[in-house]
Amino acid sequence: MTRTLDRPVARRAERKGLSEGKKAERKLGWMLCAPAALVMLAVTGYPIVYSVWLSLQRYDLRFPDQRQFIGIDNYVTVLTNSYWWMAFGVTTLITVISVAIELVLGMALAIVMHRTLVMRGLVRTVALIPYGIVTVVAAFSWRYAWTQDTGYLADLFAPGAALLTERVPALGIIILAEVWKTVPFMALLLMAGLALVPDDLLKAASMDGASAWQRFVKVTVPVMKPAILVALLFRTLDAFRVFDNIFVLTNGAQQTGSVSMQTYNNLIKGLNLGIGSTMSVLIFLAVALIAFLFIKVFGTAAPGGADERKR
């Protein structure tokens, strides 16, 4: 008896929480989002699911008859393969080094752009040029510049040496090309962060006795930390999928290939859909893990975040 009684009461109380207007508004909100959400699902969700499905099969276009569901066998194959781990190591190396350099240079450029008083527009436009050039085009010009005997940079720094055919110098050139290309993007994101730091705060720090460097480290950086994290996240995700520069500069020779290169070689050149898809799924998981870690750090460090509001 009590059960049948308190149920409607509870439900009515629940309904009271949301007025009719609120409910209609919420419904409208869902309806307005729906088309975009559906398109997103179609263009991103479907390929992901399909890749996962392919990665669970033996499926080589050269031997289509042998197509067969084999569970996680492909994953075992890839994850026990030393070439995969070599590519993974190279990718991680390129990612960490190039993002670190980009952060430092991007910050310096952001500060210059933020502080410039004269010809601000011109400075910003010039700084953005590398980012506006198609990566492959830029990569080719780097390749010509570093080609033995004919390239001006090769002539200048290492006459007679074929840098692009040696592993360490080649990786250095790949990182250089990556850095050159994306520092402006980094700087732009960081400049938005610099704008978040009120002038008064820096003036107060000056009055409190901070030197320029102390102001930067103790006030500017902590206050713009959310912007720095976003910039790092974007760049790390991007850098981990590095492909064009390597493809043009070395084509992965001398063990300079990234995981994306490996995937390309298996999927497109080797026509092995099963192994190729497995690698794409692994890259996807790695990228998702990076994003997850960043957002975890984010959630605990961002000012005004959940843990601060609790107090």
């Binding site: 008064d200 705060l201 003036k203 107060a204 902590p222 206050v223 930390k225 000012p303």
Partner: peptide, 10 residues
């Protein structure tokens, strides 16, 4: 002392 107080938010 500033009008905006200029306290360090972090």
């Amino acid at each position: 002392v500033f009008q905006s107080y200029a306290l360090y938010p972090h």
